[in-house]
């Protein structure tokens, strides 16, 4: 058992490590604003890390500091054992590639040229591409499925497409670490899921360490091997997503003004908890959505059976049926709409 553990540990290759890192930015000439202190973080090969936290807590500052775009205030960042400050910009560009929130406005650039720019740290002084460069670019295009629009101009791409292209550029840079700053920000839901799945697969297939800052809590919980949870004031909690849910870090980080993180569902409950309690029996899809509807109507869903109000959702040959039990009086409804209308009329006891 002990033997097994040590080999597993050895396989987790440490790519980046921060020790006692303080981050911040300059405000004016001599005014340094620290946003977080004492950060000890680790990034391993083949892992997706999601950096979560409310707006303005310093996520971007942290990413930029780790990537060497911004100076550290205190402490060190080590990349594959070498301290960040010791790495020349050209060498650093071979370690970390980035997808930023910066809008690339150069509409005349075609997709292929943009992806090819990822070879910048590797190509010669005039930027001519060798056959090796070209095969890396082709691989990047293949893995991001951007092949169908390599000839198009950047200005003609949708947000989802252009985000994939920017990722392809980062992949073409061929670095062990990729850092993405809110890559899902302007995407619709399918594109978000697609991108996250792509990043997850990329980390597993190519053994890259991928750090993503995002607001997509539910997606982060699904793809992240590690979560860095940052709070306003610079407090940082790290660990497996599930650990952070179970130890209450999520609730602590996000609960404000009546918005509750529900550890049972891993999502936020935007409805104020109701005064009326109801028990919902049944566990099919219909029961799930009935719970959702009741929450929206301001009910409190109780797990206990002792409530005076209870509904049993039964699915019979794909036809759901709602059986409402109130003070031993039983009524059956055949549509959700009907059920909700009647259950809503009941006065709170």
């Amino acid at each position: 058992m002990e033997q097994l553990k040590t080999t597993a540990e050895a396989e987790r290759k440490l790519l980046l490590q921060t020790t006692g890192l303080s981050i911040g930015y300059k405000q004016g000439r001599n005014n340094l604003k620290e946003v977080a202190t004492g950060l000890n973080l680790e990034m391993f090969a083949g892992e997706v890390i999601c950096l979560l936290g409310p707006n303005g807590c310093g996520k971007s500052t942290l990413l930029r500091t780790i990537a060497g775009l911004q100076e550290t205030v205190l402490g060190t960042v080590e990349i594959e054992g070498t301290e960040l400050g010791q790495l020349k910009p050209a060498l650093l560009a071979k370690k970390i590639s980035m997808v930023l929130t910066d809008n690339v406005r150069s509409g005349d650039l075609d997709v292929y040229s943009l992806i090819a720019l990822g070879r910048y740290p590797h190509s010669g002084w005039l930027g001519r591409l060798t056959t090796e460069d070209k095969s890396v670019i082709d691989q990047a295009i293949l893995s991001t499925a951007t092949g169908e629009f390599v000839d198009r101009k950047l200005a003609t791409l949708s947000d989802g497409e252009s985000q994939k292209v920017m990722l392809a550029r980062a992949i073409a840079q061929d670095t062990p670490i990729i850092i993405l700053d809110e890559p899902t920000a302007h995407l619709d839901l399918p594109s978000r899921i697609q991108l996250m799945r792509l990043l997850h697969r990329l980390a597993k297939d190519t053994k890259k360490a991928i750090l993503i800052s995002t607001h997509e809590l539910d997606l982060a919980l699904q793809v992240a091997d590690q979560i860095w949870l940052m709070q306003a004031g610079g407090h940082m909690a790290t660990g497996l997503p599930e650990e952070l849910v179970l130890n209450g870090s999520f609730a602590e980080a996000f609960n404000k003004d009546g918005i509750m993180f529900d550890p049972a569902t891993g999502s936020f409950n935007m409805h104020a908890s109701g005064v009326k309690s109801i028990t919902v029996n049944g566990d099919g899809t219909a029961a799930f959505w009935t719970r959702k509807a009741l929450l929206r109507k301001g009910f409190h869903i109780s797990g206990a059976q002792k409530e005076s109000l209870a509904v049993t959702v039964l699915e019979n040959a794909g036809q759901p049926r709602w059986t409402l039990e109130k003070d031993r009086k039983i009524t059956t409804y055949h549509t959700l709409r009907d059920f909700l209308k009647n259950v809503n009329l009941i006065e709170p006891t």
Binding site: S97, L117, G118, P121, L126, G127
Partner: peptide, 20 residues
């Protein structure tokens, strides 16, 4: 000209590709 190409993406991207 290689520098100029990289600068098309803006300062931050250029920096991330190793441009001083």
């Amino acid at each position: 000209s290689k520098l100029l190409d990289a600068l098309l993406l803006g300062d931050n991207y250029a920096r991330s590709m190793g441009v001083t």
